[in-house]
Every structure is written in C-alpha cells, then in structure tokens.
Nucleic acid binder design. Sequence first.
RNA 1: GCCGGGAUGGUGGAAUUGGUAUACACGCACGACUUAAAAUCGUGUACCGCAAGGUUUGAGGGUUCGAGUCCCUCUCCCGGCACCA
Length: 807
Amino acid sequence: MKYNPEKIERKWQRYWEAKKFYHTKNSPPAGGNYMLLTEFAYPSGNLHIGHWLAFSVPDILARYLKMNGKNVLYPTGFDAFGLPAENAAIQRNINPRDWTEENIKQMTKQLKSIGAMFDWSRAISTIDPEYYKWTQWMFLKMYEKGLAYREKTFVNWCPKDKTVLANEQVKDGYCDRCGTEVEQKELFQWMFKITDYADRLIDDLDKADYPETVRVAQRNWIGRSEGALLKFPIFNPKFSKGGQEYIEVFTTRADTLFGATYLVLAPEHPMVTKLTKDENLSAVSKYLEEVKNKTEMERLHIDKSKTGVNTGGYVLNPINNEKIPIWVADYVIGWYGTGAVMAVPAHDERDYEFAKKFDLPIKEVVKGGNIEKSAFTENGVLTNSDEFDRISSGEARKRIVEKLKEKGLADFKKNYKLHDWVLSRQRYWGVPIPMIRCGPPAGGCGYQPVPEKDLPVELPKLEDFKPTDDGRSPLAKAEGWVNVKCPKCGQEAKRETDTMDTFVDSSWYFLRYADPKNKKEFADKKKLKSWLPVPLYIGGAEHNTMHLLYSRFITKALYDLGCLDFSEPYLARRNHGVILDLTGQKMSKSKGNATDPDKEVSKYGADSVRMYLAFAGPYDQNIIWSAEGLVGIFRFLNRVWNFIGEPVEPKTADKEVDKILNKFTKEIGDDIKDLKFNTGVSGLMKLLNAIEDKWLTKKQYGTFLKLLAPFAPHIAEELWQTVLKNKKSIHLEKWPKYNEALLSDEPIELVIQINGVKREVLKITKGLSEEDVKRIVLDNENVKKHLAGKEIKKFIYIKDRLVNVVV
RNA sequence: GCCGGGAUGGUGGAAUUGGUAUACACGCACGACUUAAAAUCGUGUACCGCAAGGUUUGAGGGUUCGAGUCCCUCUCCCGGCACCA
C-alpha cells in the first residue's frame, strides 16, 4: 500500500477526538502539570501558514512532554473581539458576531487538521459572555482599586476607524490596524494606571526566562530614566504677587545646571500664555497656531529643524539666581516629563542646535569637549560651576540636587515614556465597559460601577453598528440598552457606551484555561495554582511589547488584588519567526504570496507540513517557505512508510540497531526539549539513513516510531497500530529510555592535528589515558611522515576528542 | 543617533559552546530502472589543484597549541526605541 496521508490523517484525528485523548485532567500525575501556551488565534477568516508554524511545531514539544510523564495542557481558543472583524463585517454588510462565529467554525475545523493535541474541551472564546463577564469583573476590581479611571487627555484618534488607539497601537504616527494617519484629540477616556507598575514591569523582567529581545523591547518601551525634578522660580512681576511660582523641569543632567542659559516650554505647556510678555504675545500666539496645524508626523519626522519663539519672560536658575529667558519650542514634548526643559546648549545636541539658530549663549560647564564645534554630551569634570568645580558629573548630579533639595527646589525623580493604557474604544465589537453614568455631566451620582451580580453586561444586538464621527460609540444608539437605573440612587441613568480594547480580553485568557467553565470565579484558586504560572509561552515577536506588557501588568494587578499568588504570568517565553517567501518577503494575503496550508495538506499531508516547518530552520528565526523543501520531507515520510515492515524475531535482533536507536533517543529528545526542532528532524533522518536497510524487531520498529510520533503523529499512529499491530495508541506510550552506558560504549574518532592542521583520524575506544594515546599516535605511519625530522614541542590531548602535536 | 540580534556552499541550515567547519536536507550533475517521462534507487557535489597539498565561516587585526565560536576596528542586513531632556 502506498503512503496516502489524506486517507490516514482524518481517520486518526477522529479516533483521538472520540477517545478524548487530549482532554486534560486537573489532577496532576507524578510528572506534574504543564500548560504549554501558544497565542490564541484571531478569527480573521482562514487559517494561514503562520498559524501552522505557531501551533504545529510547539505541538512536537507538547507531545514529547506528555510522553515523558507530564500532564500536558495544550490549550487553544479565540481572541474574537476587535476592529478587523468589525471592519470586515461592515464591508460585507453583515453582523460582526455572525462573521466572527462563522470564522471560528471554519478555523476550528482547520485547526483540527493540524493534528495537534489541543484540548478542545477547554477552548475559550473572548466573545462568550461567560468569558467576558470576568473581563468586566476585572475592570471593576481595577476600578475599585483606582487602577481604572476616566480622564480627559490627548489621545490617538484614528479618523478612519473612528476610535481612539493606545500608544502601542500607533506605529510611526499611523494606525496599526488600517494605516491611516493618527490625529491627536482631547477626549474623556477610560484608562488603566499601568504607569504605577512601570518599575515592577522593568524589574521583574529578570524574574522570568525572557529572550533578550523581549527584555530590551519592554525596557525601551517603558523608557525609565532617572534624574531630578528642578524648580525654576518665575521672574515676572506680573505673577510674583502672592507667593512665588515655579516652572518645573525634569533633567537627567542636573550636573549641567550652571550651563542652563534658557528654558523651553512645550507649546502645550499650560503656563505659556501666562508667562508671555504683552509685546511678545502676538508672535507666541502665531507660533502656537502653527504648531497646532502641524501633524504629529511633521512634528516628529519631517520638520526636525528647530523652531521656537521667545516669550519675553524669565526664570531664575535655582542654583545661582541667574536670570534665564523662557522660550517656547516644539522640540520639547508636551506629555513627557513636565513639558518644560532647562536648556544646556553646551551639553545637549538639541539645545545646541537651537542656541546656534537663535543666537543664545552657550556656556561650558563640563570639560572634555570642544563646544565651539559641537555639544559635549558625555560625562566629565565640572567647570564654571562655583563650588562644584573639579567634581565629576556623576557626583555633581547627586550633590547639586541634594543642595537644592534642602531649599525645596529639587528632588530626585524617575521618569517614564510609558503612558497609562487608554482602554476605551468607540466601537461596537468589544466588551462593554461595565459602568453607568448617573445624571448630567455635572451633578447626579457620576460614574457608578455595575453591581457584580448584574455581570455580564451583555453586548446588545445592533442593526446599525457602524462607527460615528462624533467620538461616540455606536452603542449610544441602542436606547433600550443604554437607559438604566442608577445602581446608587435609582434615578434615570445611562450605560457607558464605549467598549474595551481587545488587548484587555487577551491579557488574562491563559488564566481561564485552568478552569474555563467556572461560573463563580474567573478560575478556581486551587486549579490556578496547579497550572500557573505558565511554564512556557511561545508566540510571535510582534507581541513582545503590547500583549506581553499588558498581560504582565494585569497579572501584577490581580496579584495585588489578592486574586493570584504569582505576579509574573510566564516562567519563560520563546518567540517564533514569520514565514517568508523565496524572495525573503513576508507572506501575506494582500501581497498574494501566501501559501495556503489546506492545499499543501491535501497534497502532502499534515505530517509533512508540520515536519517541514520544524525542519526549515531554528524556531526563533524566520522561515523561508520552499515547496521543494516540503517535498523533501514528504519523501522522507514515504521512506519511513516503506521501512516499517514485518518485524524479525527478538532472537535475531541486531545489536547495532539498538546502539543507534539508543544514541538518537537521547539526541532527538534533547533537541525537542531545547526547542531545536530542526536538528530533531535531521536526527530522525540520520537515524533512518543508518538503519533503513536493516531488519528490525517489533520493539525496535516501535522505538523508531515513538521517536517519530511527536513530529508526525498520524503516520506514526498508522504504522504503530496497523503494521506493528499494537492495540493501544502510540500517543499513550512513554518516550523510550536510553542507556547511558551504551552511549559511552561507542568507539570514537580521535582527530590528530599537527600544528593545528588535521592529518589523521583514528578510531579508538573511549577513556584512554594520555600515555596510551601518545603511543598510538606517534606510532601512526601518517603521523610519523609529518613529524619526520622535527622536534615535538608540545603534545596536547583533549580526551576522546583530539590530539594536537606542536613541532 | 542609542540598544538588541545576525552574516557559514548554488539554497535552507548544522557544528557537542574554544577542539574534524559545511551534518541533515533542497538543488544540480552523472548513472540504474523505463520505449519515454515521472516516481524510486545509486554516485558525486565549498573553492584551487592531475596529485601531493593548499585555501575558506561578511572585511581586517588580536588572544590561543587550536577561533565560525572569545576580544578590538570596520561593512552590510533584520528588529526595538528615537527631538524622551
């Protein structure tokens, strides 16, 4: 019979499903529980080849761990709310729910064709009210703790999607979802106080086994910098009546304070007009108007040359009371720090450029550079700084701040680039924010949380769910839903009509896998304890900042709320790459270069696709899809198919085969454990090459199939049950044990170098002493030839490996 | 600009972490089977050289008996951050 994957794969998938093989029990066996987490899928339409990479390759590890006695949970689910689904539904003029549910059905079918050991009994979907009830519950808990709040701020507004976006969802000034240029709007929004967790989010990165890229990306994103807050007294008769007023600035270079020759306010700074002298007012207003008309893009990227105007106002340098002019310039960012900086042109490139352009004084206070030519931004020794002269920058930073601190004019301060997480969206397809607004904007009870017993606040069915231009969610139109009684006073009130960012839904989904059907809690404490934190989380690098940061934050918040007894959700994280076409382009539907996995599966089978993806390269690197490479794997599986035949009697067992199997049992197992799936596959190939023309016993054939089973579960099962006539599934078998003694039994090849150049390879037994080896080596004809007439200076012997004779 | 990762045959990649560079595949070439092709099997395949031998891991230098691996300088590619004070 020929190898026909289409015939056997469906059959075994049904068999495994019928026998509930992968329905994980809660009680751990001796080996313990292990949740191997992969990122759940967004139901966008069809499964693409990237999903196969994300799910089929880690399945190799899941199966290996199961064979090694772990109670493995390989969960799956759908991250089903969100903008793309909603936009797609609008385009097709159908309801987002219908569209999403249809996709979930289709993708579930496709996911099953992978042959992964997903536990479908625990599958979750974020649009299930039984799930999002707990998303809302968590929001309320956060609200109680003051971690969720509503405030008017400048937010990113996508004019096409008609919703606000979190900072993380804006890429170079464009909407991450649709590519439209993002505008800044000042709106009331719901936010999570993620900034409260900035330090812990950085410091705890070292508590888990995260790849360096993740650590760096998150640290960059949070952007902690340590410096000081300095108060500059305002010198302006207009405002000094009735107590001194100050401009606060943040700086990491307090050591350069004596070099501050002017002060700059961001155009957004609330004090700008107040501080501007009457005769400068028209110039300043004009400038503010100009800046307002610039888009974020122009301000950040196109127009990098410095602009600004003098306000005519002054502050005093707190360290020496020098009078310093106040300027307004848009190179200072409104939201970062205090929106004002002390300008030290001698020691900051931006200030230098600005000072040159507007002819402001440049005063050197740190020695080491040439300020005639450029700003000197490194540390050095202070000069022109009174009592601080000849002190190093590092020391001066401390001392200057300490001195000012005594007068209440400074303090040490950490600053962050991280913003609070704007979580409200003015869109239909999301989890309703469980809040009720009582009374007019002023008066009434204000915002009141929906009582816990009323959860979930279900998303109503809407005929017209299209977004609006007025910054209001489409839910505002659902009058029957919006109008409720205030939970506090019982008066007429309205529901919050914004929905939550989908990243809230996906920030805690892995917790639900521990107890997906629980109606009383988001998960039972005991079950949480037995499954979490996640031992290993595998996913795409595109989630290294957003999703990973958010889920770490929510985990920490839940920990603080007493809901969890761990504060870091994952013990380890590994990234997988993306799939590229032969020209190195990223595969995508829109480019038309995407491989359709269904087609490949119907041609070569799921086993071939799985093994190809595992084989094509290291798992954390990008994979180049090669149709020819896939055929190579298919050929290999055909050879396997033809190899497993009628077993011989144990009496005639080939001992050599045992040795080979023993060696590869260790090698392949180690490879899987280390996520080196590519060399694991090559190990299987080497193994087959070594034993292909030998006759094996049933046990030996079985061992081979067990090594193959995690990679190609269908063909392994077929040959195991139908050719070898085993009654039970191969996927209930244990990973073969290898014999350490047998490994060291092997003769080894000793490399002989003369002056570092390989001259001879000798087969010797393991563990020989240096004297024995020396005798054997110097007796070798080839070695003698190369040594003739030369004096041996050194004889280096690396045990069981190599000899280097230096002459 | 700062930070991180990388560069190995015609291609994807391997290399026990300082010890045989190019495993395993793909591709290609030749051969076998075939009327023929496909499939399959066999042989070869880093480069120079008839050979002995020599050269080779982006470029150059260094440490070492020995470097793809460690150190320094540089080039290019990918990713994160970026007027963040």
